[in-house]
Design a protein around this nucleic acid. Structure first.
Length: 257
DNA sequence: ATGGTCGGCCTCCGA
């Protein structure tokens, strides 16, 4: 059995106690991290290694940054999303480990929508679609996990009307995610829980956590070879209720292997 | 309720 989780930690250094506690309790074999908000030399490598994990880091100062932790050694297969040599933002890291291929994805937020940030998001999703199609041809068990900054459907949001104009819920954003899935991927949470309402992000503001005003934007996309092995998937709300929590909480799945 | 959330950081920007 291989347990793979994704978690936007909103700074790995600010979140180290929370991340350590969750790793020791949840014991993922592979953990995909987003928004580590540091370069590799500022990553708490020794602390993570002490928990028994290898680390692959694609860092950036102050913003973005992704990493992959694994009980097994990691072979990096892609650092940075292909398709735009001018893109300097650290939002994609891919590796082989634990007998599968995984990617840690921090998809651009895209707000405000009347600025170039939204077009950057849509362009980034186009590039991800191209790369995701290439990956499918390997016929490997693949998990593309991360913060997709996309609310797939109205039921994935506590108040769809309140989010109607937001980059996370714009029709173009949702269409772009559907196109990626339609290449031949399976969204793990919906495979296991076709009807369930659950969230993975609650804003720090306006008592969103206390009111359960959440959205589901952290996803695990599985190739056909991976979904054949899929046993379980869930969102662990517990870390979001802890002191000094990230605004996201981990999403995990297990594969028979 | 004269405040209102975080983290990183060239005291504001990004989320």
């Amino acid at each position: 059995m291989v347990k793979v989780a994704t978690w936007n930690v909103n700074s790995i250094n600010a979140r180290l106690p929370n991340a350590t506690a969750w790793i020791q309790q949840a014991k993922p074999d592979v953990l995909l991290l987003q928004e580590i908000k540091c370069e590799a030399d500022k990553f708490p490598l020794l602390e993570i290694q002490a928990l028994g994990y290898h680390c692959a880091i694609h860092g950036q100062k102050s913003y973005n940054g992704v990493a992959i932790l694994s009980r097994d050694p990691l072979e990096i297969t892609q650092e940075g999303l292909p398709g735009d040599p001018d893109d300097q933002q650290a939002r994609y890291l891919e590796a082989r480990t634990a007998g599968i291929r995984v990617a840690s994805i921090y998809l651009p937020n895209g707000n405000p929508v009347d600025t170039p940030k939204f077009q950057y998001k849509l362009d980034w999703m186009d590039r991800l679609k191209v790369h995701a199609a290439t990956l499918l041809k390997t016929e490997e068990a693949i998990i593309l996990g991360g913060d997709y900054n996309c609310i797939p459907e109205p039921r994935d949001c506590y108040d769809p009307k309140a989010w109607a104009g937001d980059a996370l819920f714009k029709p173009q954003t949702r269409e772009a995610l559907r196109e990626i899935v339609a290449l031949g991927y399976y969204e793990a949470f919906r495979e296991i829980h076709p009807q369930r309402v659950a969230y993975s992000f609650w804003d720090y503001q306006a008592r969103a956590w206390d009111a359960d005003h959440g959205i589901r934007i952290d996803h695990l996309l599985l190739s056909p070879q991976a979904v054949d092995l899929l046993e379980d998937c869930d969102i662990d709300r517990e870390p979001r209720g802890q002191p000094k929590a990230s605004d996201h909480t981990p999403v995990w799945c297990t594969l028979a292997a």
